[in-house]
Amino acid sequence: MLVGFLSAAIIAGTPLLFATLGEIFTEKAGHLNLGVEGMMYMGAIVGFIVGLNTHNPLLAMLGAVLSGSLGALLYAFLTVSLRVNQTVCGLTLTIFGEGFASFLGQRVMGSIVPGDIKSFFVARPIPGLSSIPYIGEIFFKQDVFVYLGYLAIIASTYYLFRTKKGLNLRAVGESAAAADASGINVSLYKYVHILLGGALCGLGGAYMSLVTVPVWQEHIISGRGWIAVALVIFASWNPIKAMGGAFLFGGLSILGFRLQSMGIHISQYLIDMLPYAATIIIVIISTRKNKKEDMPPADLNTPYFREER
């Protein structure tokens, strides 16, 4: 029972995992992109339509990656090159993404993901690992999309904290002026990582439309992008903590209904409040502790203009 619940929590948490990771990259570059929800919608609809027409799961994922990055490109152009207010620009991207998905989605409303794709995303136990008691059941009897999430977390952690490029990226987010002075191409770093962020958000959206729901329906993302924005703070900009947070929040999002089926009556809506309340508490605690690695990138949400140094 518990193993089944935890395994389901991972599935519910995977879209959050991708989107949170994407927003971590964006924020590490010093940009607060509130368009996560919009980019998830773009990835969800394009991934779905490509999947519907090509019956190819990899092309569907590629479509999601490209459309998420396209949304991010729009944001990057406005905020990096034109130095538009990031909060306002991100919100506009969310409106755009939702409109975009709902327009393209009209023709495929209620369509079901083709069987070839469904069968590609069935749970595939990893030999050896999946036979570890409990842990194997929970983590290693999942679909390949979930495994891709694990890999993305490992790769991101390595990239951010163990490579020169990762160090440079963090420098850009902490102080664009100092990074610029030390010869880092600030705009390039910002563009690349904002786009990478969009690609990951797109994948998170595609997980919803291709695997979780497998039918196109309006409001398919329903606020998950915003949870991801919260999770970034919850995870204090750390991919490993983001994974834990994503699965925790995923679990909370299905807890109420599970409890109800066990005869315990707690409103799902009250449980839904927990992740947000937890994030607030974490934001407060992290300002109190004042620990360097738990703080947001110092240059977050401030535009960089070389001549104003």
Binding site: L32, T87, G223, W226, V229, A230, I233, Y269, L270, D272, M273, Y276, A277, T279, I280, V283, I284, T287, P296, N301
Partner: peptide, 16 residues
């Protein structure tokens, strides 16, 4: 404390 995230989270608490 950063107000952007704080106020954003309070939205969801109120709506829920």
């Amino acid at each position: 404390t950063n107000e952007t995230i704080f106020t954003l989270m309070l939205n969801y608490l109120a709506i829920k």
